[in-house]
Simulated scan of single mutants.
Amino acid sequence: MDWLERTAKLRQWTRNGTRAPHKPLLLLYALGRFQDDADGELRYSAVEEDLQRLLTEYGPPNRTSPAYPFHHLVSDGVWEVRTTRGPGSPGSGVRDLRETGAAGRLVPELRAALRREPPLLGRMARLLLDLHFPPSLHGELCEAIGLELEPTQTEQLLRVRRQRNPQMRELVLTAYEYQCAFCGYDGRIGAVPVGLEAAHVRWWAFDGPDDIDNGLCLCSLHHKLFDKGVLGIGDGHRILVSQRFVGHSPAAREHVIALAGRPLVGPQPGARPVAAAHRAWHIAQVFHGTPRPAAGTGRVPS
Results as ranks from 00 to 15, higher is better:
86 G>Y: 10
164 R>V: 04
143 E>K: 12
198 A>H: 11
104 G>N: 06
56 T>E: 13
196 L>C: 07
271 A>L: 02
177 E>M: 01
32 G>N: 08
289 G>E: 02
83 T>R: 14
108 P>H: 14
38 A>S: 06
45 S>V: 14
290 T>A: 06
128 L>M: 15
133 F>R: 01
91 G>V: 04
269 P>C: 04
169 R>M: 15
139 G>A: 14
147 L>E: 02
40 G>E: 11
215 G>H: 08
140 E>F: 01
236 G>F: 00
219 C>G: 08
26 L>I: 10
247 G>T: 01
92 S>G: 14
185 Y>D: 15
187 G>A: 15
41 E>N: 11
61 P>F: 02
231 L>V: 04
88 G>H: 13
31 L>T: 11
209 P>G: 11
212 I>H: 01
58 Y>L: 07
49 E>S: 11
286 V>G: 00
254 E>I: 11
200 H>W: 05
79 W>R: 06
151 P>A: 09
219 C>M: 10
180 C>H: 00
183 C>S: 15
104 G>E: 08
142 C>P: 03
36 D>V: 08
71 H>D: 15
180 C>A: 03
240 L>Q: 03
158 L>W: 11
121 L>H: 10
128 L>E: 00
164 R>M: 08
191 A>H: 10
153 Q>E: 15
282 H>F: 06
201 V>Q: 00
147 L>W: 06
27 L>I: 13
273 P>K: 11
232 G>E: 02
230 V>K: 05
161 R>V: 07
109 E>Y: 08
206 F>G: 05
42 L>H: 01
178 Y>C: 03
124 M>F: 09
89 S>V: 06
141 L>T: 00
105 R>V: 09
93 G>W: 08
212 I>A: 12
245 F>T: 03
71 H>T: 07
58 Y>R: 05
